[in-house]
Design a protein around this nucleic acid. Sequence first.
DNA 1: ACGTTGTTCAACCAAATGGTTGACAACACT
DNA 2: AGTGTTGTCAACCATTTGGTTGAACAACGT
Lengths: 124, 124
Amino acid sequence: MADQLSRVFAALADPTRRDMVARLAEADHTVNDLAAPYDVSLQAVSKHLKVLEDAGLVTRTREAQRRPVHLEAEVFDLMTKWIERYRRQAEERYSRLDAVLARMQDDDGDTAATTAQQQEGTAS
Amino acid sequence: MADQLSRVFAALADPTRRDMVARLAEADHTVNDLAAPYDVSLQAVSKHLKVLEDAGLVTRTREAQRRPVHLEAEVFDLMTKWIERYRRQAEERYSRLDAVLARMQDDDGDTAATTAQQQEGTAS
DNA sequence: ACGTTGTTCAACCAAATGGTTGACAACACT
DNA sequence: AGTGTTGTCAACCATTTGGTTGAACAACGT
């Protein structure tokens, strides 16, 4: 279908699914249990769960007739790794830029109007 | 349209958009610049940028004809906050469960077959 | 065997998504 | 003034998504 990271992000892009994850963080739940608060059919909830399962966010084991749903929190790491990597990169870049701007203030350069992105583009 | 958290997750659910964000973490880019590596029309890239902009992940300022795209890394916090909250909650639950199981081992309870989720459901 | 409970599968529908092409707006360069 | 560069807007198309209903399946209690 798509790479897992895409599936995880897509799965969490829906408020109902995020709410399910939130509740599953507290305790495992059956499908009926999960469906109770929402004003949609049981089948719709089952579909949402399939999306979460395909993303690797939950697993379902069998227990008599019930299908307890269990949150697999490790998948969160996939996202945080991705996010943190680029957040850090961006922040480092901004602080480098701050340094450049501070230097320009001191020097009173005549290239002060040049935009930040060009500075960055040519910076080492 | 939808809440920002949903928009941010949805925006990052697309590999092309994630790649754009990755490149924007390094340096600001113009639209043409951004579009170069991808095998899609410029208009498609423009649409992707609109999605990222609506999510608050990027801003576009005007500079002559060019429209430099700039990454707004603060929005990442929205996601990490959400993710970390439930990850922590889930992890705490698991360690509590570990404690319960350990206690059961000691006691050699006859309810050992009872599933974890039921233990959790009635715990605390 | 039979009904009940819990859950999924199948077919369908409306809206959103990601892509296309064509027109055009804004600016820069002669 | 005329041309090229950079980017967006509008209309269209195919696919995906989130929802519905109705039927089916699976595991129990009787």
